[in-house]
Write a protein that binds this DNA or RNA. Structure first.
Length: 646
DNA sequence: CAGTGAGCGAGCTTCCGCTTGACTT
């Protein structure tokens, strides 16, 4: 009988590529990620029995598992080629259990890119499933389950039903709350900035000292009348900018967010389509590496398309994000020839293409000119920049002339010691601004920086926080600041006002009241959960498990000890807050509370008709009779609610 | 005496990280 081999990979899109160069006796099937997990409805861990986990086959994977079983029967050996990371190792281990594979017929093979050379290399060094790596994943899984399924019920009991806590989401909530507090506590500082324009306004410069008060600014502006403006320095230099690395999941979400206003979720859906249609490499990755074959192809493409001088002198490799597992390569187009994309994903594709291509192109060079004009104890600084060589900017198509080249020509003609005639002086009142609320993709950036979450979960973390109503994505209220400005023209000082608008941003994450309350509660009783150090320490311990120097049970116990005892005590205490009746129907708005501004509505609650104010678990209720459902007026309602409030 | 309100119990919610369709809106 001829021998047949079955290779199991995680993703179905790999199958087509693999069959192009794999030996004919290998059949490839996909398992589509995990095939077993802890039960959904219960904790699934015997805390008293060394945290023994109860693994269950995933219901939704029944069909897949059945197909894999049949394929195994038809094969002599099974090659487990799941991704080369902790999750992949664990999936391989679960596959052995679920498919009841005998050790002798199983090999584990790990490749980082789906290219002939790399896959054949991996096949030539098969190994066993690494139990230490599996143990590290198991520890991660169990700690996450313990945090989520033991702490969440405390929130249901003490705050409101349906809430949740978790290692990642609660630390993310903390980031949002801390930013909110920074914004609330921010006191804008006023200062005055002086600018001057010379030679009929063709040159402008900024004074390098700011003034604290209006009077000082005015006095300085006054003094500009009779000053002699002489150039003391002219510096002409060449500055270089290198191309940024190609994209990974977190940076893809950031760029798509800031350029196109896409949410991480939308970005990932579009990227999924590009990936499935074979236009880009895998889109859930933390790596900025490029496979050697792709790199070679790219460098040939660059020198062929743009010319040799546009190619980076040497192969550029980039610093990886901290904690990167690099199971995949960077996000890049599968073909260097730019293609048209039907549907709405063209600009996302172009973004991916540009960043990947640019990453191996030469740096751009700018001609920079700076000149100084002394005034009192400081000077006006004027600068201009023009592109001398566009380099990698060429890949984005608009790398040509940037702003400032006109001024550049002006500045370049001037000489040291030359006298300039003042055209206009301006003193502007300025306000420092608070840090902005996070955008969705800005939060992802911070999550990645803190080592929270993984490429496959960044988008869902953001949506979970919103599903739980811990935060909402809103356009911030536009506060127009009226600021003073003084002009010096032809020896006369005139006063004016200008309006400074908040920058036009959409979709900023604002913490809700319930979000604040959940955070405060968690911070009070479960400070370790909201702390990003929890995740950092966990990562370090997982490394030790993976290296085989500690047992996973000991690590799980160590982390569980940080919150387990508190869970036990709090479960025994009485619920703190009044719980709200569910099944609220027939809501009718009757107005807003004159003091608090909260919405007042009548509705049918479980116990009958009520008038209520506010949202969330802090809602104030007062019972009313059925007739009042339609006729209750605002004043009566306010009186009733005020009585209930205390 | 009837209507009201307090109290009880049952049943639900929840994590993070791998993967895609199969479902609605």
């Amino acid at each position: 009988m001829e021998s047949k081999r079955l290779m199991i990979v995680e993703s179905s899109t790999k199958i087509k590529t693999l069959t192009r160069f794999l030996p004919a006796d290998i059949v490839v099937k996909a398992c589509f990620g995990h095939v077993s997990d802890l039960p959904k409805r219960e904790l699934g861990i015997d805390i008293g029995k060394q945290f023994k986990p109860h693994w269950r086959e995933l219901q939704e994977k029944k069909g897949t598992i059945e197909q894999l079983r049949r394929a195994c029967e038809a094969s002599t050996t099974v090659i487990l080629a799941t991704d080369p990371d902790l999750e992949g190792e664990a999936i391989a281990w679960h596959l052995i259990r679920v498919l009841k594979l005998a050790k002798e017929r199983v090999v584990r093979v790990a490749f980082c890119s789906v290219t002939e050379a790399e896959v054949l290399r991996a096949l030539s060094c098969p190994r066993k499933v690494d139990r230490n790596l599996v143990d590290a994943q198991i520890a991660r899984r169990i700690v996450d389950r313990l945090v989520g399924y033991r702490v969440s019920p405390i929130l249901w009991r003490h705050l409101k039903s349906g809430l949740s806590a978790g290692r990642v989401q609660s630390a993310a909530l903390r980031l949002l709350v801390e930013r909110e507090r920074e914004i609330e506590g921010f006191r804008p500082e006023k200062s005055w900035q002086l600018t001057a324009s010379f030679e009929d306004g063709k040159i402008s410069g900024t004074y390098q000292n700011a003034f604290a008060t209006r009077d000082e600014a005015r006095e300085a502006l006054e003094g500009m009348k009779d000053h002699e403006y002489i150039i003391s320095h002219i510096d002409r230099t060449v500055e270089h900018t290198s191309a940024p690395p190609p994209l990974r999941t977190a940076t893809l979400q950031q760029e798509a967010g800031s350029r196109f206003g896409m949410s991480p979720k939308v970005t990932m859906t579009l990227a999924q389509g590009l990936y499935e249609d074979g236009h880009i490499t895998y889109h859930r990755t933390d790596s900025v590496d490029m496979s050697p074959e792709a790199m070679q192809g790219l460098r040939t493409y660059i020198s062929g398309t743009y010319g040799e001088k546009y190619l980076a002198d040497q192969q550029r490799s980039f610093r990886q994000a901290p904690g990167a597992q690099m199971a995949h390569e960077c996000i890049r187009p599968t073909s260097w020839t730019r293609t048209g994309i039907p549907g709405g994903a063209q600009r996302l594709y172009d973004l991916i293409w540009t960043r990947a291509v640019a990453s191996q192109m030469a740096r751009a060079a700018y001609d920079v000119c700076k000149l100084q004009v002394p005034y009192r104890d400081s000077h006006f600084l004027s600068s201009a920049r023009s592109v001398e060589f566009d380099g990698f900017l060429r890949a984005s198509g608009h790398g040509g002339d940037l702003h400032g080249s006109g001024t550049m020509a002006m500045l370049a003609n001037l000489k040291c010691g030359q006298r300039l005639t003042l055209h206009e002086g301006t003193a502007r009142e300025q306000l420092t601004s608070p840090p902005p609320h996070y955008s969705e993709s800005g939060l992802v950036k911070e999550l990645e920086r803190c080592g929270l979450g993984r490429p496959s979960t960044y988008a869902t973390i953001v949506t979970t926080l919103q599903d739980r109503r811990y935060c909402e994505s809103v356009a911030p209220s536009k506060v127009k600041q009226r600021l003073e400005v003084m002009h010096l023209r032809e020896g006369e000082i005139t006063l004016g006002k200008r309006e400074q608008e908040a920058p036009n941003v959409r979709g900023r994450l604002t913490v809700t009241e319930i979000g604040q309350d959940v955070y405060s509660y968690l911070d009070k009783h479960f400070g370790c959960i909201t702390d990003i150090a929890f995740t950092r320490d966990l990562e370090l311990e997982l490394d030790r498990i993976a290296a085989g120097s500690v047992k996973w049970m000991d690590i799980v116990k160590k982390f569980h000890d940080e919150f387990g005892p508190t869970v036990d005590t709090l479960m025994k205490t009485k619920a703190l807050e009044k719980r709200i009746p569910r099944a609220i129907r027939e809501v009718r708005r009757i107005g807003r509370h004159p003091d608090t501004g909260q919405m007042i509505e009548t509705c049918k609650a479980r116990y009958g008709p009520v008038v209520k104010m506010g949202d969330g678990y802090k809602t104030v209720f007062a019972k009313i009779d059925a007739a009042s459902m339609d006729s209750l007026d605002l004043n009566t309602a306010v009186t009733m609610l005020n009585r209930k409030m205390h």
